[in-house]
Design a protein around this nucleic acid. Sequence first.
DNA 1: AGCCAGGTGACCG
DNA 2: CGGTCACATGGC
Length: 279
Amino acid sequence: MIIQNSNFNIMQIAESGQCFRMNRVQDSDERMKYGVVAYGEYLEITQLSDDQLELSCSEEEYHRLWEDYFDLTYDYGKLVKNLIEGEDLFLSEAAEFGKGIRILKQEPYEAAISFIISQNKNIPAIKSCIEAICTRYGERKVCEKCGGKEYFTFPAPKVLAEAIKEDLRALKTGYRDTYIISISKAIAEGSLNLDELKHISFEEAVRTLKKIRGVGDKVANCIALYGLHHISGFPVDVWILRVLDEIYQNQFELEKYAGYAGIVQQYMFYYMRHKKGVA
DNA sequence: AGCCAGGTGACCG
DNA sequence: CGGTCACATGGC
């Protein structure tokens, strides 16, 4: 099916470092086409033009799943316009440059494991590690609508709860192996429920998340932002540190963006990496 | 060949 | 609280 949206650029979303299972797939044309696995399903997205995309799903599946996943009921256009017209030159440029980015609503558990793995790894390494985990522990499925494309779902907590440390190590998790098993066990046995954290305040959610082994302030903010859709989340990684330091001399006023700081952060991250020639 | 990567926990004063 | 250090391992 085809959708219209002038703030939806699939290449920008895929390169924005918020999800790790969205990859470019070859198209007969030179068009940007990406595939993503989420919620046990596989979807291909083709950018037909600046404001038009083709999704490889039925309308039923779109309304049941992907419309929410891509946060398509939120008006990013209004926010982008305000930032572009605002006083802050860097943010104005960043919003203009990344105006097709949206904050995805990923599965909380997948976001948690993904960002626990992300620490001290670069994005390509994170992606290959997660893909290896899905191939080893996920469920194999085939997408008939996509020419019989084979894919692996993200494993359930109870599966990784019973994983062997050495097996995880073989998939390049490094010292994070025990973190992965620990959080998975907590969820599998019911002492931790990530979904519940969607319905409490952002601050309280972060406080709870930071009690998990391997989850510090940065990862907690990532889980809150990308897995719980607490868009007040403002993850500070090495790139955002550079922005805060080099652009704002550590005088950035986060309070100005209260309530949607996570979206601002995403434009900053994407733009700074571009300026430094990484992406 | 080293330094860096969407950091965290432990330990220190 | 703020500073330092080890951690496991691929990317570039």
